[in-house]
Simulated assay, not measured.
Amino acid sequence: MKQIKQFFWIFLFSLLGEIVSALLSNFIAIPGSVIGMVLFFCALHFKWVRMDQVDEVGTWLTNNMGIFFVPAGVGLMAHFGILANTWWQLLVIMVVTTTLMIAFVGRIVQAVKSKELEAETKSADTLEEVEVEADVV
């Protein structure tokens, strides 16, 4: 019974996301699943839904995430003829975008790390100055 209630919360927000997506479809195209996840995140964040109300089923779903890739894989195989004509273009796009994303994330991590190092160095210098002043007095 507990799992049914947990599935209810997850499906409820999925349904709400689909409804909002249908209402917004004339203005902007956002998948209902994405809107549902954002709504569910907000509900968890603002404690409208507690984590223990969805923990078991959520853990099971993330542990078995491969199940959700089966329909996409079947769709790829069903339309293999379309992909066969453009496989090299897709390969180039994947290589270029992956390389750019790795470089972008690397730059962001370097910037964050250098800021953290600057902050640590600054606080250590300030602490040393306070210790020196304390020794002088």
Rank of each mutant, 00 (worst) to 15 (best):
I28N: 01
I10L: 15
M101D: 06
L12A: 12
W48I: 15
E118V: 00
L15D: 12
T86G: 02
N63L: 04
D52S: 07
G32H: 08
S123C: 01
F46M: 14
W87E: 01
M37F: 13
T86S: 12
V74F: 13
F13M: 05
H45Q: 15
Q89Y: 14
E118F: 08
G66T: 05
K122S: 09
I93L: 10
L24G: 03
I82G: 04
L117D: 11
I93N: 01
A119K: 12
L76Q: 05
M37R: 03
V112K: 10
F104V: 03
W60D: 01
L44F: 03
F68K: 05
E128Q: 10
V105C: 00
H45W: 03
V136P: 00
T59R: 11
T121F: 14
V95L: 14
I108G: 02
W48E: 11
V54D: 02
D55L: 14
A84R: 12
N64C: 04
E128W: 09
L100Y: 01
A78D: 13
T62Y: 04
K113P: 00
F41K: 02
N63H: 06
I67C: 03
E129H: 08
G75M: 14
A111L: 07
S25M: 05
K115L: 13
I102E: 13
G81N: 08
T97S: 12
G66H: 06
E131G: 00
L91V: 11
A103C: 09
L83H: 04
V130C: 02
F46E: 15
G36K: 03
G17F: 03
V137S: 13
I10K: 02
A103S: 09
L91K: 04
V54E: 03
S123W: 00
T126A: 15
V132L: 13
L61M: 15
S123M: 10
T98V: 06
T98M: 11
E56Q: 10
Q89T: 09
G58I: 06
V96G: 04
I67G: 03
Q3C: 01
I102G: 00
V34E: 07
V136C: 08
A124D: 14
A72T: 11
H79G: 12
T121H: 15
V105H: 02
L16K: 00
E116D: 09
L39E: 04
A124H: 10
M1H: 01
I93P: 00
I108P: 03
T97Y: 13
E116A: 11
K2W: 07
L23C: 10
I35C: 05
F11Q: 04
F104N: 06
V137E: 14
V137A: 12
E18N: 15
G36H: 03
D135A: 15
V95T: 10
A78L: 15
V112G: 01
L83S: 05
L23F: 14
V74M: 14
M51T: 09
V132F: 14
I93V: 12
P31H: 13
L44G: 05
L12Q: 02
M65G: 10
T126V: 07
W48G: 06
V112Y: 01
L91P: 02
F41D: 00
I10R: 01
S21Q: 09
E129N: 10
V20W: 02
I4K: 04
V49M: 06
T99K: 05
G66S: 06
T98I: 07
F11S: 09
